[in-house]
Amino acid sequence: MFVYFTRRLLYLIPMLLGISFLIYLGLELTPGDVISYLLPPEAIADLKPEELMAMREALGLNDPFIIRYFYWLGGILQGDFGYSLASGVPISQLVLDRIPATLELSVAALLFSTLFGVILGSISALKRGSLMDNSLTVFGMIGVSIPEFIFGLVALVVFALQLEWLPVGKRLMPGYDSYWDHMPHLVMPAMVLGLIMTAGVMRYTRSSMLDSLNKEFIRTARSKGVPEWRVNFIHGLRVALIPVVVLIGFRLPMLIGGTVIIEQVFQWPGVGDLFVNAVRGQNYPLVMMISFLSVTAVLFASFLIDLLTALLDPRIKLE
């Protein structure tokens, strides 16, 4: 087993190298460059072509492709993630600054959706075929059918602008001393994102619970006279939870992507917001690093999940 996991871990290296090259290649194909992000269009309209060229040269945008790629890769290996072309700030610092916001939002949405999803999914499974089950299923499907930004905007209008229960967006405000001060800002984006994700978890819980309720050992437990509630919640749920954990674990890095739109709606200064701005500005070191980091996160997360499930479930045996 140890050998297997070491091999899987080593296998990540060529994979990541390949990905980094592809990302770089792709970004090289993008039209334009960071100049157009540095300056507003009217300003560019006032610059002469040779001035633009001089700026480009200074930013190292005229070196050959392969040299730039290896230059960048070499930097990463030495722990230097490069600098944002727009501000000259180290990318590591830019991303690190944004990670707490995204992490907060994702974890909150994840907790919310897990809690809700598992509870509702279990209810659905236990009351299979009931009105409750059917309406939950339909609600879940409606939930995933509404474009998330509309969901967000409507929530914003209702809860922030009309009822004035919650702030309209943003994260930290002047005068927030304690970590918990900004929690009201978190509620809406986390709820919206969480609700969108709930449906998936609910569905997954429901089917894996149905699956495990039919399993031999449940029948055995039942026949041994274990009370019904115990059968359902201790035996059924525990086994059903493994795939749910898998699902959640796998979604964690995916949340980097999932937060992109919600962060835009709620002016939440997270990695998704940074990414969208970087993409719009062709700030390629930044785009590359964020993409690279998110892929890395996904790969390591799936590795960890594999490891975890293997350790958790004694039925899985490896060579």
Partner: peptide, 12 residues
């Protein structure tokens, strides 16, 4: 226009 707007508009 996307990308290098200045060059796409004003290259003489």
């Amino acid at each position: 226009l996307e990308g290098d707007v200045g060059a796409q508009l004003w290259t003489a």
